[in-house]
Nucleic acid binder design. Structure first.
Length: 277
DNA sequence: GGCCGTGTTGTTAA
DNA sequence: TTTAACAACACGGC
């Protein structure tokens, strides 16, 4: 499922091919998304030029030459890709933009329709995706800031890492991987996980996310890169999805628990991630 | 053939 | 403050 590394992989591939290009024509814009009314902003995209492409957490921001922004979130099954205009569309394609290069199209498909597409102005972008709703990006946050944000809460460290207002970009898979790398049990209170400093946890955040980016992300089921190929990091996962399999470090059986964070599958090694109580 | 699990964000209730 | 439940949805696996 797309988290920060998967989104970053897609941005790196798409940005150099889209920035500077104009939307020659909105080929298709459906109104079937669960939370977005894509069809309504046909007019706002036609004839516009992309001037920037950025990422914050799991959100992508495609800046336009009229200061508006096309905001993209992949949800669970969303895919953003570049395709030849003559290539058949993938099922559940909700947006097709013909670009001013070759006969390339920027496409968004999403079978589950949990993804989100918005066209917003600078003010809306600041309010809807500003610090009230999104914490610092997980790759940019400083150890002291992370420690500060985790110190004054009694929630579990896993719940806090999943909260996008605390730190943006970590989802269920990488939360488990990060906590294994940091040797912290997922039910540990957040304030305790950053004692005496947040540096070890932040190192794990950076190391795990960067390693996943180097391997083009993790494909469990739906995620593919902008080229349509799976990532490779699933082969290197230490705990996620490895219920009852031997821990790569100590050979103890990996445990699956659904009670640590409300209903979310949580994989961890009870020996390497000794509970701090 | 119907149910379950899958995970993200946002809202609402407790 | 925080958690749980739920909604939006398709689909693979049993």
């Amino acid at each position: 499922m797309p988290e920060l590394p998967e989104v970053e992989t897609i941005v790196r591939r798409i940005r150099p091919r889209v920035v500077g290009r104009e939307v020659v024509r909105v080929v298709h814009a459906s109104n079937k998304m669960a939370r977005s009314t894509v069809g309504s902003f046909r007019r706002g995209l036609a004839g516009r030029r992309f001037v920037a492409m950025d990422r914050h957490g799991k959100w992508m921001f495609l800046g336009l030459d009229d200061a508006n922004t096309l905001v993209v979130h992949l949800g669970m099954t969303g895919r953003l890709s570049l395709a030849d205009a003559d290539d058949p569309s993938a099922p559940h394609t909700h947006l097709r933009l013909l670009l001013s290069i070759g006969r390339q199209e920027l496409r968004f498909s999403d079978s589950r329709r949990f993804g989100e597409l918005y066209l917003c102005n600078a003010t809306e972008r600041k309010t809807r995706f500003g610090p009230t709703h999104l914490g610092p990006d997980a790759l940019a946050i400083r150890p002291r800031d992370l420690a500060h944000r985790l110190t004054h809460t009694r929630r579990s460290i896993k719940a806090a890492l999943l909260d996008q207002r605390v730190v943006a970009g970590v989802g269920n898979i990488y939360a488990d991987e990060i906590l294994f790398a940091a040797a912290i049990a997922p039910m540990t209170p957040a304030w305790r996980a950053v004692q005496p400093s947040g540096a070890p946890l932040l190192k794990a955040v950076r190391d795990v996310l960067n390693a996943a980016i180097r391997h083009n992300g993790t494909t469990i089921r739906d995620y593919v890169t902008a080229d349509g190929v799976p990532g490779q990091f699933q082969q290197r996962l230490a705990v996620y999805g490895r219920d009852k399999q031997p821990c790569r470090r100590c050979a103890t059986a990996i445990e699956l628990s659904r009670t640590i964070v409300s209903g979310r599958a949580t994989y961890w090694c009870p020996r390497c991630q000794a509970s701090l109580g």
